[in-house]
Write a protein that binds this DNA or RNA. Structure first.
Length: 201
DNA sequence: TGAATGATGCGCT
DNA sequence: GCGCATCATTCAT
């Protein structure tokens, strides 16, 4: 194992420290068959009950429970009737916060991911988009609240590759857009682009 | 090339 | 019932 698996202490920090630090890290997922490795390109921070865009702003519910739990676990939710989104829980237990994985570059395991039925066979960035990422890896709520320091899904440190860290407003939400809590690698083509009607810079 | 829309189901009011 | 941390397709220019 050439790289270090990120320990729980990595996630047990201020979310705005963890989010940009995640860029360039490797997400390793071991489904029952195969192994998929991808490189984190784009993330967004959702922090606390005072952030109106954060699911935790409506309080503790069965759905948002993982965000209120200890750091270093997954928070996967179902949205728009057909998509799942993967988050990494940060900050100490009782402090609800998480980082949404918005885009990644496929590094290893192309044969193990599932592509959309029609288009996308030659998509150079099959993990570009939070919904696309989870669909490709087959992540569902079955993988919700999983320990990120275990062997099923975890992150690895990068190997000193340069990351061009950029920052902007969050995408795809209608509240809390003033917070510049989106971080991405400006050197990667896998970065997602906001829809015109939602463009906020 | 860009904007509008349909698919689709769950959590919460 | 409504809105949603989305995406692919369709339609208009």
């Amino acid at each position: 194992m050439p790289y270090r698996k990120l320990p729980r202490s990595f996630y047990d920090r201020a979310t705005l420290e963890v989010a940009p630090d995640l860029l360039g890290k490797y997400v390793v997922y071991h489904p029952p068959r195969g192994k998929i490795v991808s490189r984190v390109i784009e993330v967004e921070a959702y922090i606390g009950q005072d952030d109106p865009a954060c699911h935790a702003s409506r309080g503790l519910t069965p759905r948002t429970r993982p965000m209120f739990g200890p750091p270093g676990r997954t928070y996967i939710y179902f949205i728009y009737g057909m998509y799942y989104c993967l988050n990494f829980v940060t900050e100490s237990e009782g402090s609800p916060a998480a980082v949404l994985l918005r885009a990644a570059e496929l590094v290893e395991g192309r044969q193990a991911i599932s592509l959309p039925p029609k288009a996308g066979r030659d998509d150079p960035y099959p993990l570009s988009g939070p919904g696309k990422f989870c669909r490709a890896l087959g992540l569902t709520t079955d993988q919700n609240d999983l320990d990120l320091t275990g062997d099923v899904i975890y992150l690895q440190d990068r190997n000193g590759e340069t990351v061009n860290i950029q920052q902007s407003c969050r995408i795809g939400i209608n509240v809390g857009t003033a917070r510049r809590w989106r971080f991405y690698d400006g050197n990667s083509g896998a970065v997602t682009r906001p829809r015109q009607a939602r463009r906020k810079g």
